[in-house]
Amino acid sequence: MRVTLVQGDITEQEVDAVVNAANSSLLGGGGVDGAIHRRGGPAILQECRLIRSCELPEGLPTGRAVATTAGELPARWVIHTVGPTYVAAEDRSGLLASCFRESLRIADELGAKVVAFPAISTGVYRYPLDEAARIAMRAVRETPTDVDEVRFVLFDAKSLAAFEAAYDDVFGA
């Protein structure tokens, strides 16, 4: 598996699957979640509502993942995962790592070969960027998958730099 890092807009990635840093309601929100729902159009929300009514009436638990259509995005699917909110007094690294493992598991079920990830939990969920980047890189490195490329799509230069440093630490580049 190849890991690539780019600065850009995840909603513009021509990949098999885009990972959404969703909230547990699956009904849209701010940040990456809001951008994916806006650009992808109503088909994504329609499938999320169906998942909520049939499979997950209480919402998507933290660290789990589900897939929907990508609607009007240039991807085939959206894999929704809920990252943990950062709490300094509690180690939630396992939940954050689970977001990546579960998303790759879903990608394998779908047959996705190229998957784009955002910096999960680093926005309104306040996970420290450097720590989240290391957790993400380790989880991707340690998860067996048939995915050919994991592409981290980082919104700004600061996020890109943190993920580049984590890549160097974890993959020894």
Rank of each mutant, 00 (worst) to 15 (best):
H37F: 00
A17Y: 02
L73N: 08
E102G: 10
S93Q: 10
S159R: 12
G83S: 08
R52P: 00
I106L: 11
Y167M: 09
V18F: 01
G8Q: 10
A67R: 10
L60E: 01
D146I: 03
R39C: 04
P128R: 07
G94L: 11
A97D: 13
S24G: 14
R134T: 09
T143R: 05
G172W: 05
S24D: 14
P42S: 14
W77L: 05
R92G: 12
A132T: 04
S121C: 09
A173V: 06
R151D: 03
Y125C: 05
A165Q: 15
E131Y: 07
P42N: 10
Y125F: 14
A132G: 06
T81P: 03
L60F: 02
A67D: 08
P84S: 11
G123V: 06
P144K: 12
L50D: 14
A97L: 13
E14G: 04
I106D: 01
D91W: 06
D91L: 08
C48Q: 00
A139I: 05
A166V: 05
D169P: 03
P118I: 02
D9Y: 08
G29E: 02
I36H: 03
V153Y: 12
E164D: 13
F163Y: 15
R64P: 00
V66Q: 00
P57N: 06
T4P: 00
P42D: 13
T68D: 02
Q46R: 15
T62W: 10
A21F: 01
A21K: 02
I106R: 15
A173W: 04
L104Q: 11
E142I: 12
V66P: 02
D168P: 01
T145M: 09
E102A: 13
A65Y: 04
R52H: 00
A97R: 15
D169H: 11
A17D: 03
E164K: 14
A21D: 03
E142M: 12
G172V: 05
R141C: 12
T143S: 13
A161E: 14
P128E: 06
L160W: 08
F117T: 07
R76Q: 14
G71M: 05
Y125G: 04
S24F: 00
F171T: 06
P144T: 08
G31L: 13
